[in-house]
Simulated assay, not measured.
Amino acid sequence: MQPHRHASDATDDHGHGHGHDHDQGLAHDLAVLLQRRRALGLLAGIAGIGGLTLIGCGGGGSDTTTVTTGSSTSGSGSTGTGTTTGSTGSCSVIPEETAGPYPGDGSNSNGSGVTNALALSGIVRSDIRTSIGTASATAGGVPLTLTLKLVNTSSSCADLSGYAIYLWHCDREGRYSLYSASIVNENYLRGVQSTGSDGTVTFTTIFPGCYDGRMPHMHFEVYKSASAATSYANKIKTSQIALPTDVCTTVYSTASGYSSSLTNFNRISFASDNVFSDGYSTQLATLTGSVAAGYVATLTVGIAA
């Protein structure tokens, strides 16, 4: 098993004029590599305690905790708390990934200056299809409702409430708001939400396109609270969401506006993708629905809180 690479997650040869690469440097890469290798043995010393069964590493080398107790348990982060009930389940630490060159979280520039969607009034929202502030464009595409469930792998998969998740992804043409030349003044397909008492957030968005050089994906960052979700400096986890290939094929081959995505998608695979090639099982969302009715996606996101 090889570590996830932290190279840029996009190329500019599709001509959309996405800004500059956000290279976090060798020191960052080594720190993340060491962090993920240490995660392999994080829970080994408590196997069998409290009715927990520890099983091997998940996609990308993450620890997995299986809940077998019938009683309620609870855990807490620095500012968020969570509760889980007694049904058997499992959770894995989701791999740390690059934020890529288009995060819009204050960490880089779009060519005109530092761009930070987290500072926008109205960025805390569930429907992220339309731009906010002085911008007004709406991203077209197949409707997608995404629910992320944040759980604590250090506390029997307890739901983590009160945390904040920042989600962003490209539009159906493969462009990123705030960065791509044609939509540099738009900020759609970006939003923040706080997890509820059950640890979940739900975003209303569109199925993302596939640009050349990457498998279809969505980005997110985790913060300990909504008040902390104002700058990348406060994030505690960065990762990416993968999408099932059969659904991608269906959307790109039949839905309006995705024609270039099908061409790009046919040239890439999980095996050749520079982020998912070393494993993606903990990052693969479950999807139901159709092009006509829209899709519903779910993913459990495990962090060691």
Rank of each mutant, 00 (worst) to 15 (best):
S78C: 05
R267I: 01
V222N: 03
T300S: 03
D159M: 05
C248R: 00
T195Q: 06
T83P: 02
Q24A: 02
T153C: 14
S194P: 15
T98H: 12
G58W: 03
S78K: 04
Y252F: 15
L33S: 05
Y163P: 01
T245A: 11
T65K: 01
V275Q: 12
H169E: 12
L52A: 07
V151N: 08
T11H: 09
S177W: 11
G174F: 00
L33K: 07
V93E: 14
I165N: 08
I46A: 14
V251C: 09
G100K: 02
M215P: 01
K237H: 15
T298C: 07
H6A: 01
Y223R: 03
T298L: 08
L118E: 07
Q283W: 13
A293M: 03
L26E: 14
T245H: 09
G86P: 07
A119W: 15
T300Q: 12
Y223I: 02
D105H: 04
N108P: 04
I49K: 09
E186Q: 13
V251K: 00
T11W: 15
D159A: 15
L189T: 00
D171W: 11
Y280R: 00
G196Q: 11
S290W: 10
H219M: 09
Y188F: 15
A242W: 00
L54W: 10
S62A: 12
D12K: 08
D273R: 02
C170Q: 12
P143L: 05
D29Q: 12
I49H: 12
S74P: 04
A117M: 06
T300L: 05
T84L: 06
L167M: 12
T195A: 06
T204M: 00
R175P: 11
I183E: 01
S261C: 05
D246Q: 11
G61H: 04
G75C: 09
S256R: 06
S161R: 05
L148D: 04
V184R: 10
I236M: 15
I268N: 12
G133A: 03
V247A: 07
E221P: 01
S155W: 11
D198I: 00
K235P: 00
H20C: 03
G77L: 11
T64H: 06
T204S: 12
Y163S: 08
T153D: 10
